[in-house]
Design a protein around this nucleic acid. Sequence first.
DNA 1: TTTCAATTGCAAGTCGATTGCATTTGAGTT
DNA 2: AACTCAAATGCAATCGACTTGCAATTGAAA
Lengths: 140, 140
Amino acid sequence: MKNIVETLKTLKLKVTPARIAILEIFSISDKPLSVEIIAKRMKDKQINQVTIYRTIESLVSAGIVGRIDLRRDAIFYELIDEHHHHHIVCTKCGLLEDFETCQIEEVSKNIILKSKKFKMIQDHSFELFGICNSCSRKNV
Amino acid sequence: MKNIVETLKTLKLKVTPARIAILEIFSISDKPLSVEIIAKRMKDKQINQVTIYRTIESLVSAGIVGRIDLRRDAIFYELIDEHHHHHIVCTKCGLLEDFETCQIEEVSKNIILKSKKFKMIQDHSFELFGICNSCSRKNV
DNA sequence: TTTCAATTGCAAGTCGATTGCATTTGAGTT
DNA sequence: AACTCAAATGCAATCGACTTGCAATTGAAA
């Protein structure tokens, strides 16, 4: 992500402390984040948790943040950047690994061509769930 | 799904009214169901909503029911049957369309071969999200 | 500097899902 | 057929992620 203020202006979103802070946190993180995690990383700044929820919602609507269901306690979010990727999640400990695949886009295209009820896809989910090597060894 | 009682016995699960009722509902439904929907379809039978939650959990653990996040209010579930499929979801009205694709299994295999932190995948999510033709026309 | 919709904080509320506990029950054992 | 006990169930209470109402504040355009 380039300059955060510029990005917000381009999107015609008001430049507010909450948006800047949250986008900063996203841009230095290489992992999807939950509202709870974001709140912890903002402890110094005085920003209400409700504001985090609403700010993220505005960023999702603006199309620069994506929502991910990792089958954990809360919803996770991450910046939608040029490196489109997906995740493998450990169902025991939550460990994440990214992977990139361009095949999903092809699959989606094929599917939409065959669909009778849909002509256009906005988004997709594709996450893998397993037990990481570390948890496997622990044999929990 | 063949005989429900036989299935439960094979899985070493007790044959209880709740399990039978829920598996019956699943087996006549061609769509994923939420706990709320299942509860409605069981109004005649006297089965507590908590029991539905716990029964579904046992069926998920036993590996015959799968959990699906359709980005709706609640989690959805459906029988894991021979026709492995995924869904396109209308983000406006929730309309569902199934699709089958064997390509996802291939993609998963390729990914796991490259992974450093995982050697085995249990499950995956793959759903498409869009606006259905009907909602498009309404231009909401 | 004026204006006003958008944003924010606070408190309260919503609602899907979970938990504790006493009771019941399925199914193996005697 | 009676015995045994872990598993399953119902009820009430609770949790916790998320949402909403409302008044106060603020970003940014006029």
